[in-house]
Amino acid sequence: MLILTCPVCGVTAEETEFHAAGEAHLKRFGPGSTDDEFESYLFMRANPKGVHFERWRHNNGCGKWFHVARDTTTLEVFTSYSAQTVSPPQEVLDLIEDRRPGWSKGSGA
């Protein structure tokens, strides 16, 4: 069972205080989008072996959403950061680069 830190209230707690909600940084497509765009928004999800960006909510806590960068194989948590971002901030990417040199998004490991 993981432990995570909510960047909003600062609590470090076990997984039972949180709720996982899949891949982060999806771009919403609404009316006027093509079928392909909409399909990718609604259904296509990354399932990397390695670095992954996820949405979590501190539901048994402050109730706020946040993002987590972690490794899906080792379960290492690089960091958690604001949900109000459309892509991982540079400092998050730097942190991951530090732990996983040569890593790039989409490359998995």
Binding site: A21, R28, R55, R57, N59, G63, K64, W65, A83, Q84
Partner: peptide, 13 residues
């Protein structure tokens, strides 16, 4: 309630 908070916090913040 969670659905509302989700959209407010993660899309239309």
């Amino acid at each position: 309630h969670g659905h509302m908070e989700e959209w407010l916090q993660t899309e239309w913040w």
